[in-house]
Amino acid sequence: MIPIAPLITSFLREHMPVERGYSLHTCETYAHAFRLLFIFASKRLGIRPSQLCIEQIDVALILAFLAYIEEQRGNSPATRNGRLAAIKAFFHYVEFRVPSALEQARQIHAIPVKRYDKALIQHLTNNEVRAIIDAPDITTRLGIRDRAMLHLCFAGGLRVSELVGLPLENLSLQRTPSIRVLGKGRRERCLPLWKATAADLRAWLAVRGQVPVPELFVNAQGEAMTRAGFEYVLDKHSRTAAKKCASLKGRSVSPHQLRHGCAITMLQATRDIRKVALWLGHADIRTTEIYLRVDPSEKLEAMERVLPLGLRRGRFKAPDALIASLFEPG
């Protein structure tokens, strides 16, 4: 029996962040998935999590775990598939280190994902984005910072981790303003900035002052802005914007909706899904195709190019006198 503890430790601490370049958020998501799995397995097997062995995490246990998180924890099929993806990634890692677990890994990789109805993504319209970006009080230092953060998050289509982790040195405000973003999988991309976005960033740099951290955006204490900190800022200004923008009332706005809004805007402007994928830093263009489902202009363009069927017009004729009498005016 091979203890699982050393393998999961090296997987989460070395393989994911160092060898594969996964973001901190992804590493935390995977770690939470394994925490749930190990708690479930320890209760089911009657042993402590530290005593678990690779051989005990078999297909039957994993299927029971997936059923548990859906039925008892109330997780959605998407979350269930995400937990399964974490488990499969770990066993792919195990394959190259524990040859005796190859057959076990093969069986786990064969567990199918669960199909479910995929709703259209929730995104922000240009009017909603404008209302949110205009919400901060730019007569204050933090208001200037908030406007610059919100504007850059939308204009760059940035993930939260990319926004809060952006170093000051990766911002260029020279003749052609741009930022260098290190995204998922350590893929770097360079994005030009709109003049209005660059202007908001210059305003922030003018009041940012000397801080001990390299990140572009900092909190009131001069420390690097956190994911939770930006989510608080977005929620605060979304509620303020809702007073003027009716479509935001009672709505929960997430940072990723800013990214989705940018993607839709880029798609409508370029008509090229490949350019949108490059802008967002997607490794697989199939990930970007979700925006084609949202944007109705793509379907309208197709409809305009297809000629409608030339159907022959005619009048209904009753088959006999009895039925014809039913249609005579009374």
Rank of each mutant, 00 (worst) to 15 (best):
E328R: 15
G143Y: 02
I2W: 13
S76I: 06
G222F: 08
V160W: 01
P308K: 12
I108G: 06
A105R: 14
A199V: 00
L37M: 10
H32T: 06
S10V: 09
T26Y: 13
F230M: 06
I273G: 00
A269G: 09
I8S: 08
P136M: 05
P212T: 08
Y68H: 15
V94K: 07
Q72N: 12
L201S: 08
H123L: 06
E188W: 12
R83A: 07
L37A: 10
A101G: 11
G310Q: 12
R83C: 08
L102E: 12
N170D: 09
V113L: 07
Y116I: 01
S238A: 15
H260T: 05
R239T: 03
A41S: 15
V218P: 02
F38S: 10
V164N: 01
V233L: 06
A199P: 01
N75I: 00
A85K: 05
S247Y: 09
A242C: 07
P212Y: 09
L102S: 13
A206Y: 09
L61T: 09
M16V: 14
I138P: 00
G314R: 07
V211E: 11
L120S: 05
L280C: 07
T176G: 01
E328N: 11
Q257C: 02
S178D: 04
I273C: 02
S238Y: 02
L36Q: 15
L216R: 11
K275A: 11
R35W: 09
A321R: 15
V18W: 08
I69F: 13
V218Q: 10
A220P: 00
L152W: 01
L292Y: 12
A41V: 09
G222I: 11
K244E: 05
A203W: 12
D137S: 12
D320A: 07
F38W: 11
A241K: 01
D272V: 04
L182D: 06
K249H: 13
A155I: 04
V94P: 04
R130F: 01
N126Y: 01
S23A: 15
C27M: 05
E301Q: 13
L171T: 03
A302E: 06
I54Q: 07
Q56R: 15
L292H: 09
R159M: 02
A318N: 10
N170I: 00
L234P: 04
D295V: 07
I87G: 03
S172M: 07
D272Y: 13
R44M: 13
L267Y: 02
N126V: 15
A41I: 11
Q210F: 05
I285C: 08
L120A: 06
